[in-house]
Design a protein around this nucleic acid. Structure first.
Lengths: 216, 216
DNA sequence: GTCTTTCGATACGGCCCGTAGCGTAACTCA
DNA sequence: TGAGTTACGCTACGGGCCGTATCGAAAGAC
């Protein structure tokens, strides 16, 4: 379907696509979300405003596409240990989030998504689900090294593993995001190390534990 | 200074203040951030639009004030153990964040704050710094119970304790926020328990730890 | 009673959104 | 090569909202 969509007529300009998305990101940096206008993006891209509306139905959808590709540059090179891998991904994610276009656009789009189901789905597919690969990969490596226990067998084990991945993803991404955007403080290597230690060993590391955890 | 600010003339209507902030919250629920207009808020509040602009210079500042009070309802009753306290605050915070006016407004305001230093400061003062009290209190109780080691003495110990509070706050608030708003999944009691276990004992709980943590 | 400030109401310039219409450019197919 | 089809740049437009100005009336302070 996607391949045979348009077989005749003048094709869409791929150069215009790139110019528009680039212009959107640079406008986000300079103006922020509230002052970003479609007319301005068109002007920066050297393109007519109508060309924007032929591709996206509104500002939100355009910005999601402009920002989603930024997250794809996240990588997880094998740094040899679970600790090093976690610290690495924390710092990479923070570096990404400290770029003005990323932080501005991500928050604005998430805000709009709170009352727009279609946009919520677009975010989940374009960003969240795609980046969970980092956690899956880091976890797999740690299990291979013996730093984490292997997944239990069977479908129950797989479901449990999926829940663990979701949890770790929310904790790491959430902590970095909150630190950068809500608390508005920088993510330093020292902070990344502290976060990693907390994740690996917990709050109670090095302390007596007089209160046993209750079974569920 | 604040007390003797205005000594003559007609005083500001406290009823109007309340009506405006209530109207702002209800408009956020129904319309979301993008469609919320000052004229509409004035209409809902039964107030002239000029009355809004006498109190706040723009939409962002008004919404921060409308939302900040919601966070003050967070409490931390002593549930008898660190585990129970953490689970409790996670669930309370999630309940707050799942209210439409909270999630919409918080994200929108944070997005605007990425390129507005004054707004960033307002958020930090009105929300972040005020809610850290929950972590400080929970930590103090846990230390009294012997679940956490006491703070080292001296100014260095105090600084270290402050960093620990900041870290735990970012991790807990960030995880809940990311789960609710970015991943767009519900915070269930089961999830809260998993998060608490992770926070208390870390990823490596129950697994061998071949890689020792390096001292800093 | 006078002074000061807020209030509601109305009007306004300005900016932006999203769409429509037009002539032209680019590409496909016969 | 020529006809058909689609994208493009340009311009213009109605409509909505922002933030401000202006006015007379109301509400307290002195």
């Amino acid at each position: 379907m996607a391949g045979s969509r348009r077989r005749t007529g003048r094709p869409r300009s791929a150069a215009a696509d790139r110019a528009i998305l680039d212009a959107t990101r640079s406008a986000l940096v300079e103006l922020g979300w509230g002052r970003l206008t479609m007319g301005d993006v068109a002007l920066r891209a050297g393109v007519a405003k109508t060309t924007l509306y032929r591709r996206w139905s509104n500002k939100n959808e355009m910005v999601v596409d402009a920002v989603a590709v930024l997250f794809d540059e996240l990588e997880l090179p094998d740094r040899g240990s679970l600790r090093a891998d976690v610290e690495g991904v924390v710092l990479s994610f923070a570096e990404l989030l400290e770029r003005p276009e990323t932080k501005t656009a991500l928050m604005a789009v998430v805000a709009e998504a709170t009352h727009d189901e279609a946009l919520r789905a677009r975010i989940r597919a374009a960003i969240v689900e795609r980046q969970k690969r980092l956690v899956v990969e880091g976890r797999r490596r740690a299990q291979a090294r013996g730093e984490l226990p292997p997944d239990p067998p069977g479908p129950r084990g797989a479901a449990e593993a999926a829940r663990a991945v979701d949890l770790v993803f929310d904790v790491i991404a959430g902590a970095v995001l909150h630190r950068c955007l809500v608390s508005a403080e920088r993510v330093t290597p020292v902070w990344a190390e502290s976060l990693t230690t907390l994740l690996l060993h917990g709050l109670t590391a090095g302390a007596p534990q007089p209160v046993p955890s209750r079974p569920s």
